Simulated scan of single mutants.
Amino acid sequence: MHKVKLGIVGCGAVTQIYHLPASRLLSGAKIEALVDLDLNLAQKLCSKYKIPYCFNDYRKLFGLVDGVIIALPNKLHASTSIEFLKERIPVLCEKPLATSAHDAEEVIKTSEKFKTPIAVGLIRRFYTSSRLVKFIISKNILGKIYRFEIEEGIVYDWPTISGFYFNRLASGGGVLMDTGSHVLDLVLWWFGDNVINFDYKDDDLGGGIEANSELNLVINYKGDQIEGTIELSRTRRLRNSYKIFGEKGWLEFFPFDTEKVQLNLKRKQQHGMIYDKKLDLGGGKRNIIYYFYEQLKDFVQVIAGDKASPYVDGKTAYQTVKLIEACYNKKQNIPMPWITNGIN
Rank of each mutant, 00 (worst) to 15 (best):
K266H: 01
L188H: 07
F254Y: 15
D203Y: 12
N264L: 11
N216H: 13
S213M: 07
L238W: 02
L184T: 12
D204F: 03
H271D: 13
L251G: 04
Q225L: 13
L238Q: 01
K248M: 12
K243S: 13
N216K: 15
N264Q: 02
Q225H: 14
G192F: 11
R237W: 09
L251A: 03
D203P: 12
D203A: 14
E231L: 15
H271S: 15
R236K: 14
F256P: 00
D224W: 07
V218A: 12
D185V: 00
L251Q: 03
F245N: 02
D203K: 14
G272K: 06
F191K: 00
Y221K: 10
E210W: 11
T258F: 03
I274D: 06
D199F: 05
L188T: 11
Y221F: 15
Y242K: 04
R234F: 15
I274H: 07
L188M: 12
V187C: 04
N194R: 14
K201S: 10
H271W: 08
E227R: 04
G207H: 10
F198T: 05
F245P: 00
G206T: 13
L217N: 05
W190S: 03
R267K: 15
R239M: 06
H271I: 03
D193H: 04
V218I: 12
E247G: 03
V187Q: 02
N216M: 12
L251T: 05
E214D: 11
S233D: 10
K201H: 08
Y221P: 08
Q262E: 08
I219P: 00
R236P: 02
I196R: 06
T235C: 02
D204G: 04
I209H: 01
N264W: 08
F254H: 08
G206M: 09
F245H: 10
G228V: 02
Q270C: 12
E231N: 15
Y200R: 01
L188Y: 05
F191R: 00
E227D: 02
F253R: 04
N264C: 12
D193L: 00
F254R: 04
K243R: 13
G249D: 06
L232E: 07
W189C: 11
N220F: 02
L205F: 05
I230C: 11
D257N: 14
F198V: 10
N194G: 05
Y242T: 01
S213E: 02
Y242R: 02
K201P: 00
N197F: 09
I196T: 15
A211S: 14
E247C: 03
S241C: 01
F256W: 01
T258R: 09
L186K: 11
